[in-house]
Design a protein around this nucleic acid. Structure first.
Lengths: 243, 243
DNA sequence: AGCGATCTTTACAGAATCTTAACGGGAATG
DNA sequence: CATTCCCGTTAAGATTCTGTAAAGATCGCT
């Protein structure tokens, strides 16, 4: 049984969301603003969050940014049609998907299922693999081609973060906030130094690409591209759309 | 069936617009000044608006500015040739496209279709696609026909902006303000240099059209109608898409 | 306290990117 | 058809960013 947290300031929308969620036999929690939402997430650890972008006080975007400093819980964004820019910003800030108001109940549930399933995948397999790299999260062990690598605490956190978002760009600020906390958001030299050590230890079997001026990304090994959640987009395009 | 509102003070132009609109099997409404136009939009919620810039009384620009405070309805501007500045102002104020008098009926219809389609477009995924171009916003990844393209921070921001408003003209000032900030609003040579790099990397699969004296527009690929879950729309006939 | 490991800070060269300037061609205008 | 303005392209100079090394500072442990 899943628990879904609803963060929305409008009572009638909350009620609609609650009935929708409960029709899928999930439990729903409701709060009316972002601050309470963050508190509730820390307290009850819901399986997913439905977050309204347009709220008074702490905006949905700010809530999401704060949240992503310490939690990877799946977040579904609710937005109105004319907030295209905000939607993209939300996705860049770490949202997993979004739905536009007015929304269709069935579509919302199916998107909720999708993001929870995607998220469950990681804990299901406590070992992350990408090419020759393997990370055993419970054991906190990193191996390359079966050979154990010894990492410091910082290096491990860095690599873990990159692996958790393999293929995606992690911005300087995001990495710094996650590992060193919000106070050290500006200390880019930390990244350079620790990443250099990480690259030296990992060798050239693992490619951590630099996005100049933006951040870093762990490149997904060629044979791992097959069945990720987004892998299909390539087939989608090359599939006979010749102009 | 679409409803198009025509706001123009000249009766013969109105008649010409009406026959053009009705030749596409759409319904047309006509009013002769801006005040009535705003009232009519609030009342009947048309699917698009054709707005003449040069009108006595409330100018087209003032109408547009009032309108944009409460409505996102697609607006097509009608202007005469020597109103370049007004055209830019109108686009800045939220117009979706413009047509210069004297206009070609087929072109006007095609532009109307384009702005209505863009407005309708239901969000289908955090991945933007347009022809061979695909932008994965969360991953900050750009691919053409499945082939990964490496962009600098500025180039990515530029392309992101164009894609967010695909099909719409973005003025020089708007782009400059968005990427470089208000201080650099006059530096048009930035646009030329970075756009050249962008075009070189994207190749000719992606068409970024120049609107001389106005700005730039990312052209919507002809076959960009691939909606999955939502209802399909196919009122776009192959006739006369040469703009 | 002393030691080793790790993290922080500093410095600098090389790479990547951005800005600036110049020039030829093409579009708009009369 | 000529003029003027705008655009695309290129390349060099300026600037910022990155990788690397190495010297302090800090922490944990015996």
């Amino acid at each position: 049984m899943k628990t879904i947290l609803i963060i929305d300031d409008e009572p009638q929308i909350r009620r609609l969301l609650r009935t929708t969620v409960e029709s899928a036999n999930w439990k729903s929690l409701e709060v009316e603003d972002g601050k309470r939402g963050l508190h509730e997430i820390a307290l009850t650890r819901p399986d997913a969050v439905i977050l309204d972008l347009g709220m008074p006080g702490l905006s949905g975007l700010e809530v999401l940014r704060s949240l992503r400093e310490w939690s990877e819980v799946p977040v579904l964004i609710l937005s109105v049609r004319d907030q295209a820019d905000d939607k993209v910003e939300a996705l860049e800030a770490g949202a997993d998907d979004y739905v536009t108001k007015p929304f269709d109940g069935a579509e919302l549930l199916s998107r909720l299922r999708a993001i929870m399933r995607r998220h469950e995948k990681a804990p299901d397999s406590p070992v992350f693999t990408n090419g020759k790299l393997a990370i055993d999260f419970p054991a906190r062990e990193v191996t390359i081609g079966g050979h154990l690598i010894s990492l410091t605490a910082t290096e491990y956190e860095f690599l873990r973060l990159l692996a958790l978002h393999a293929g995606k760009v992690l911005t300087h600020s995001h990495i710094l906030r996650s590992i060193w906390g919000p106070k050290s958001e500006e200390q880019r030299q930390y990244l350079r130094v620790h990443l250099a050590a990480l690259r030296r230890k990992l060798g050239n079997a693992v490619k951590i690409k630099t996005e100049t001026g933006i951040g870093y990304r762990l490149e997904i090994a060629a044979e791992a591209l097959r069945n990720t959640s987004r892998g299909l987009k390539n087939d989608d395009i090359s599939g006979g759309n010749e102009i």
